[in-house]
Structures are given as structure tokens and as C-alpha cells.
Nucleic acid binder design. Structure first.
Lengths: 107, 107
DNA sequence: TATTTGCGTAACTCAGAAGTTACATATACA
DNA sequence: TGTATATGTAACTTCTGAGTTACGCAAATA
């Protein structure tokens, strides 16, 4: 099971990984308790977790032989920054429209 | 060139498509003028455009034999809604922390 | 100490996204 | 009307992400 190096966008492109993040938003979970929520094998889940961890979406705390996964901000921030760029685009587009409308009013 | 049906997250998972959205944030462009910015063939760009269009990230205006692509809000809003959910998670996590700290103060 | 449990990794298969070339079509232009 | 331009689509190939099974190891437990 080769470990692909994916950017934050590719990471959340997978529906299973998004579901994992959703589950972790309710509770910190171990690999096995996470796997209970999926049809795929545990090693498959394990791989997704590694991808989420590498991309900064979760942190992992080892307690004995168990690994507790918890959401981490870093990964999300990269996505927010990207969306914020386009937010600015819509805002400036709206401003341009306002300017046009205001200039037309005197006519 | 089969047209895969991708959700908004998978759509922005591709670096080329993200670059296209960036280019379109500066100006509306035709398929060919977009293709000038990439190493891939024009049909490949054409396919990406179709995917972006289907997912609601761009609108297309036909002018003669040219097709002008413009950013469209719809696709972005799906992503924002998803991120907003996790924003709420961080906010509530912070609130819980505050509560804990406040409860400890009287001790 | 022997066994069970929780997890990681290696090796492999498979499906599909992403690219290509070749061709068809419609519009603009000489 | 003939040609060049802008684009879409079909058929095909390639690559890799996502899944599997088999195995190994460390920690818990009997």
C-alpha cells in the first residue's frame, strides 16, 4: 500500500476521508473504532488516516496500543485561505457593480 | 475522453483546474486563451472546463465561435458550507475550553 | 509465558481520472 | 465559395489512487 503524497485539496477530495473528518468532529476515535463506520478493511482506513495526518487534518495520540485521532486545524486553514481568495473576488466584483450603478445614477 | 462526474471537492482536487479558476479570477477567458497557460493539449483543457462547468464553478457565454468562461459562485458555496461546519467545531471547542477555565477560576 | 488485540506495512490488483491523437462541426474571413 | 479558426467528441493509452490479503510487531491479558 504505497503512501501517495497529496495536497490538502486532494485529501478532502476523497468522500471516505471527508466522512472520517465528520466522525472526528463528534469525537476522538481510534483507528478500529473509525473503521467500524466503513465497509472497507482496517488497513485501508489506516492508510487514509496516515494521509489525513500527513496533510495536517488530524493529530494522533498513542495510548498503549491504541491510536486516538483528533481534528487539527492546519489542514483546514489551507483550504480556507484558498476560498478566502475567491471571496475577495466576489466582493470586488460586487464593488465594481456598485460603482457602475452609482455612475449611472446621475444620468 | 469520458466525462467523469465529480463532486465539488474532487473538482478542485486537480491542480490544473485550480489554476484555471485562478486565471479566471483575473479575467474571463476563452478555451484557447486558457489553454495557452498549460502544457496539456487543448482537448484536455476543454474537458477540465466541462467538469468545472458541470460542478458550477464557471459559466460559459458563447460569442460566435468562441466560448468565454467566467467564475460562478455555486461551486464555491458548497465548499464554504463544508468548511463552515468545521469552523463551528473549532468555535465550540474554544467555548468548551473557556467554560473549563472559568469553572476552575473559583477554586 | 502464551494468547489476544490494535495497528503498520509490503505486495498486489483494479478502476477510473487524465492525458493523447484523430476527426467532426460551426463560425469567421478572404 | 473555399479556407482558417475555435471548439467538441470519440477512441485509446497510461498512470496512480484506493482497495485487497498476508504478514509482522508491540502492548494488553489470561
Amino acid at each position: 500500500m504505497a503512501i501517495p503524497t497529496l495536497d490538502a485539496f486532494q485529501v478532502i477530495g476523497d468522500p471516505s476521508r471527508r466522512k472520517m473528518l465528520m466522525l472526528l468532529s463528534e469525537d476522538s476515535l481510534t483507528i478500529n473504532s473509525l473503521a467500524d463506520n466503513f465497509d472497507m478493511s482496517r488497513p485501508a482506513v489506516s492508510k487514509h488516516i496516515k494521509i489525513l495526518y500527513t496533510a495536517g487534518f488530524i493529530s494522533i495520540q498513542d495510548i498503549g496500543r491504541e491510536r486516538y485521532c483528533t481534528l487539527k486545524k492546519d489542514g483546514f486553514e489551507e483550504l480556507q485561505a484558498w476560498l478566502a481568495y475567491f471571496d475577495a473576488f466576489w466582493a470586488s466584483k460586487l464593488k465594481k457593480l456598485e460603482t457602475i450603478l452609482n455612475n449611472k445614477l446621475p444620468n
